[in-house]
Computed example of a mutant assay.
Amino acid sequence: MNLQVFLARAGVVSSRRKAAALIREGKVKVNGKTAQLGTTIDPNKDVVEFDGQEVKLVAKKLYIALNKPAGYLVAKSDTRGRKLAYDLLKEPSIDSDVLTQAEFNSLFNVGRLDLDTEGLLLFTNDGEFALRLTHPRYQVKKVYIAKVKGRISNRAVKRIEHGVWIYIKEKGKIVEKYRSQPAKVRVLGRGKKGYSVLVLKIAEGRKREVRRICATVGYPVLSLKRIQIGPLELGDLPVGKWRFLKEKELELLRNYLSRKSAEK
């Protein structure tokens, strides 16, 4: 494990960037020797010290669900001063649970939601759990509710269901292209007020995937909310609030991931 990652997950600091600063300042030792940037360690064998005190990983595995509001960045810091999803975890949960500073620092987000998207976002300090939920080979399904501009046609729905070519441009030039995977689509309504509401179920986790798919078929997203990851549903968790996952939910997720692994 990279030493910077270890220090962040042990709760010493809240980010790898801050961990790097401690290493550069010579405040971190590994097996009695001053550490250098790029050092890797085995948490089960190596002894890491910060300011003369031994550092160990946070023993308790944490699994958190947040209903992220639109307008919150999924990051631990931001030079532009935007609101951060992580800051919502500093408040008590809906069950009045409070994270210690070390527990908070040990967390990382499981995947992302873009700035303008709201809904279900998971946090954990369990690296294996996060990997299995986010790695493309596991094809974990996510469900979104999208409000799109216009009265969407059946043809556009079929195109989304079969997959469309996405072209990503920078300064007028195509820098990446790919075909989206087939998606399941259910039209909840084609409103008379100039918009339609869709439920989309997809397995890909590419950046701004749903927005790009809908824009490609001619119906740009007006608002977007993620309501499910695998078998885990957002439910009635209030916007901006968080809670620990229940044991039965974790068991449900583990069984789901085990089945996905067996399919490979």
Rank of each mutant, 00 (worst) to 15 (best):
R17H: 05
R132G: 03
P182I: 09
N255D: 15
G172W: 07
L245I: 10
I174H: 06
K241G: 14
K68W: 00
L22S: 08
G150K: 10
G32E: 03
Q181N: 09
R80T: 10
Y72D: 01
R211T: 01
R206Y: 12
E103R: 06
R243W: 03
L37A: 10
V55G: 10
Y63G: 10
K29W: 11
L222A: 00
I41W: 08
L115Y: 08
A21E: 12
V47F: 06
G163D: 10
A20T: 10
K141L: 11
A8K: 08
K246Y: 14
G119R: 00
K264M: 14
K264T: 13
V30L: 11
K83D: 14
R82G: 01
K207F: 13
R16P: 12
L122A: 03
L245C: 07
V221M: 04
N105Q: 11
P182E: 03
D95W: 07
Q53N: 11
M1Q: 12
A35Y: 12
K60R: 11
A156E: 04
L133W: 09
I166K: 05
A262V: 10
F108T: 00
S258F: 13
F108W: 02
D236F: 08
K177C: 13
Y178V: 10
G127E: 08
T79K: 14
C214K: 04
G189I: 04
G52H: 06
I166P: 15
A75R: 07
R226E: 02
P182Y: 04
P238K: 11
L66M: 07
I41P: 07
K241N: 10
V175C: 09
A146E: 03
E49S: 04
L224N: 01
K241Y: 00
F244L: 15
R80I: 04
V47Q: 15
W165F: 11
L3M: 05
S196V: 07
E247M: 12
K207C: 07
G230L: 02
K193D: 15
K192M: 07
V157Q: 04
K207W: 15
K61M: 10
L252F: 02
A35T: 11
S77M: 12
Y144G: 02
R24T: 12
R206L: 02
K207I: 06
Q228Y: 14
N154A: 12
E25W: 07
A156Y: 05
R212E: 07
R16H: 13
L37D: 06
K141C: 09
V12N: 06
G205Q: 08
V5S: 09
L252Y: 11
V148S: 01
A262Y: 11
L107S: 14
F6P: 05
D42Q: 13
G172T: 12
L200S: 07
G119E: 01
V55Y: 01
R208V: 00
K141Q: 05
V12T: 02
R80P: 06
V199E: 14
K158T: 07
G11Y: 10
C214A: 09
E170I: 12
G189R: 11
K29G: 05
L121Q: 00
M1L: 15
E54H: 09
T39C: 08
L88I: 01
P231K: 08
D46L: 13
C214Q: 00
S180F: 04
E247H: 04
